[in-house]
């Protein structure tokens, strides 16, 4: 966050105005329409970065059987591509930073917490994505000190993380109740039915 980046508002406004093409379904096997690897390759080229490595292409073009685990991540990667197409980044040849962000654990974690439409619709999530992007690129929003930028990112990330943790706890508690009920019922008789498989 050592260097000053663009105005935060310009990035969050850009996210709020994400065109439908960048919210379309990522191509996964036969499903979806957007080839995320092609979109990412175009972005890196526009920012003066090198081509995608084979391993990077594989991460952006997973097979159909991984659709259920990769769909959310790819949709957020697509959103990040739209954000990084902002003219501010293009003017500064930030290809290497963009590549780092697209494959970063920060972006992966955000995708696990919120899917792309929610990020676009929720002002706090738009701000979180914009600030995460700047952080991974080593930038801070224009007009903010390094400490201010870090504090604000921590605040919005913490609130979201607490929401996600609470939801995960509730889900785990429900799963535990079901597993306990399963354990109690495992030794019990089943119910009668007229045919068997």
């Amino acid at each position: 966050m050592a260097e000053e980046g663009p105005l935060l508002e310009s990035l969050t406004r850009r996210l709020a105005e994400t065109p439908p093409d960048f919210l379309a379904e990522p191509r996964l096997g036969a499903a979806g329409v957007v080839h995320v690897d092609a979109v990412a390759a175009d972005l890196l080229r526009a920012l003066g970065g090198g081509p995608l490595a084979a391993a990077e292409v594989a991460q952006l073009r997973p097979p159909a059987r991984e659709a259920r685990t990769q769909r959310r991540r790819l949709r957020v990667v697509l959103l990040a591509c739209w954000l990084l197409h902002d003219p501010w980044f293009a003017a500064r040849s930030m290809g290497d930073g963009a590549r780092a962000f697209l494959f970063s654990p920060e972006l992966q974690a955000l995708a696990e917490a919120a899917d792309a439409p929610r990020i676009v619709a929720d002002p706090d999530r738009r701000e979180e994505l914009a600030r995460l992007c700047l952080k991974v690129l080593g930038l801070r929003p224009a007009g903010e000190s390094e400490a201010q930028a870090q504090d604000r990112l921590t605040t919005i990330s913490t609130a979201e993380r607490q929401r996600v943790i609470a939801a995960a706890r509730a889900a785990e508690e429900r799963a535990r109740q079901i597993r306990e009920a399963m354990a109690r019922q495992a030794a019990e008789e089943a119910a009668d039915k007229w045919s068997r498989e």
């Binding site: 379904e25 996964l28 499903a31 979806g32 159909a64 659709a67 259920r68 685990t69 769909r71 959310r72 949709r75 899917d115 792309a116 439409p117 929610r118 889900a171 429900r174 799963a175």
Partner: peptide, 19 residues
């Protein structure tokens, strides 16, 4: 819970993951 991890509903039913 299992399906919730997919995210929101796609525009086309056929774009939902299979399991």
């Amino acid at each position: 819970p299992f399906y919730r991890r997919y995210g929101d509903a796609p525009a086309r039913f056929e774009d939902l993951p299979a399991f």
